[in-house]
Design a protein around this nucleic acid. Sequence first.
DNA 1: ACCACTAAATAGTAACACTGAATAGCGGTC
DNA 2: GACCGCTATTCAGTGTTACTATTTAGTGGT
Lengths: 116, 116
Amino acid sequence: MGKQMTEMLKGTLEGMILAILAVRPAYGYEITARLRDEGFSDIVEGTVYAVLIRIEKRDLVDVEKVPSEKGPPRKVYSLNAQGGEYLEEFWGTWSFLAARIAQLKQHIEDTQEKGE
Amino acid sequence: MGKQMTEMLKGTLEGMILAILAVRPAYGYEITARLRDEGFSDIVEGTVYAVLIRIEKRDLVDVEKVPSEKGPPRKVYSLNAQGGEYLEEFWGTWSFLAARIAQLKQHIEDTQEKGE
DNA sequence: ACCACTAAATAGTAACACTGAATAGCGGTC
DNA sequence: GACCGCTATTCAGTGTTACTATTTAGTGGT
């Protein structure tokens, strides 16, 4: 990860993982692979597991241990009601921030065009 | 600040401040006030000054001390060439992340509509 | 026995925004 | 002339976060 991306993921990675779980339950290794596929190419398992442990402690997800044919048992996480609420809050916070930043960017572009 | 927003600002507040400086030079107290006006209502001076000191150390900005009629001298920051490059990089990182998150959100909405 | 892949956990580190307080300069009021 | 309000900057200490690097564990193949 670039350093900028690393810092930007603070506060968003958690929401992204909750968003993934909102679509359907998943386990850590799977989530890591999906994030890698979606362009976060050098995200490491350890990072994802840390988030999962955190959201489990906060009771935002339910956990079920499911045996795997290919290795040790999987811990399958699914979003619960409290996690759903938290995710809604996340969208609100994100939307606000994204709108402000878009506004700042627009302001720069306007300035450069006509010298403000 | 809400806790979610606090975490989300990590990695973005710096970019936002650079973006403000890209429009025109400004000093810390002024930047704080502007951020407050734009909806980040409980941002505190200390936070902004910490960012300013950081970006000064990294040589992303030029600094000029300007006397004030109303108090101690102002430290007016302006974006330099290196800061401009860094800001460009920030927009790239931000755009990528924002696109991914928008995609995740869309995916949830699609799923909820027709059961995926 | 060894390796490759899957799967989870963990101790230690660096970076960041926040808290709370201190310092400093100016104007006005009582 | 001591005090308050506003402007303006700084700084030590804290909590949270993602990252690094390693360890442990299970299965199947050679």
